[in-house]
Simulated scan of single mutants.
Amino acid sequence: MVADPHPELVLAPPPGPRTMDRMSFLRRRSATPAGPDFDVLAMDPGDWPGNLGAGLLPAPDGTCQGVFLRYDLFGGRGPAMIIGNLPEGSPAREVEEDEIPFEVGQLLLALENEEDVTVVGTEDMPVLQGDNLLIVRRLKLSESRISCVQFDRSDGVLVTIAAWDRPITDDLYALLKPLPAELFQQG
């Protein structure tokens, strides 16, 4: 098993792909809100044909230091994509120059891939998302089956998309939309 690249973070691991139920596992038994205090930019669960899991990165004071959503293909054939949203100050954003992003590490853990993967280069490219121009960093990794891109939102949240064995094309950005924090809280 791959070592967790951020052992200081306490993760609520998503349940296995056959037991996921449209984010219902994010609800806590208490009335305390469990969600982030920022909108999460991702694909709407209704737009994805497979299973969806999510994890919250809690700080010791209970605030949310990030959200990652794991999209699995039909019937549990394995994780296809992880989309992370990490606000400024999140410890998961603190990586060395050649170190993989948190989301790539989570993808490798989910795949039970023990290969040592590093970032070997980056390329900045402009992408339109609706009327907004994004400067997207495409990360080149030592494992060529992983595609990874990152961009900064205007509110300081870093969005990272990591996909397994499929390229990340410009049409993916059109599918991204804000999922409100209320989606991650007990209703």
Rank of each mutant, 00 (worst) to 15 (best):
R22V: 14
E143T: 02
S90H: 02
T160G: 04
P45R: 06
N51V: 03
T169E: 14
K177M: 01
T19L: 07
L52F: 06
E115T: 11
S144W: 09
A163H: 04
D171N: 12
R145Q: 10
L141C: 12
H6T: 06
K177R: 00
A181F: 05
V104L: 01
Q106Y: 01
I161R: 00
M1Y: 14
R145L: 10
G16Y: 03
G130K: 09
L158S: 11
D61F: 07
T169S: 08
V120Y: 12
L111M: 10
L41I: 12
T122Y: 04
A162D: 15
D39H: 08
R29A: 07
R145E: 12
P49L: 10
R18W: 06
G156I: 14
A42W: 01
G50H: 06
A174W: 07
L107G: 01
L41R: 08
L56I: 10
P33T: 07
P13H: 01
L109I: 11
P58W: 09
R22C: 11
S30L: 06
E96Y: 08
L179G: 00
M81N: 00
L73P: 10
A163D: 04
D4L: 12
P87G: 13
R18G: 04
L109R: 10
G35K: 03
F102L: 08
C64L: 10
D21M: 14
G130S: 13
P17D: 11
D37G: 07
D152L: 15
G50W: 05
D170C: 13
E94W: 15
Q65S: 04
E182D: 04
E96W: 08
Q106C: 02
E96N: 09
L26T: 12
S24C: 02
G156E: 11
N113V: 03
D4T: 15
P79L: 05
I161T: 03
L57T: 02
V67L: 07
P49I: 13
G156N: 13
A162S: 15
G35T: 06
V127H: 15
P91W: 07
A181E: 08
A174P: 07
V159R: 01
T118Y: 12
G84V: 02
R153V: 01
G76Y: 13
P79N: 06
D37T: 12
D98P: 08
P36D: 15
D21I: 12
N113H: 05
G78L: 10
P45K: 05
R138V: 08
R166W: 07
A163I: 03
L11D: 13
V159H: 03
V157T: 09
S147I: 01
I135E: 07
P13Y: 00
D21P: 08
G35E: 03
G89L: 11
A34K: 09
D37C: 11
L128F: 01
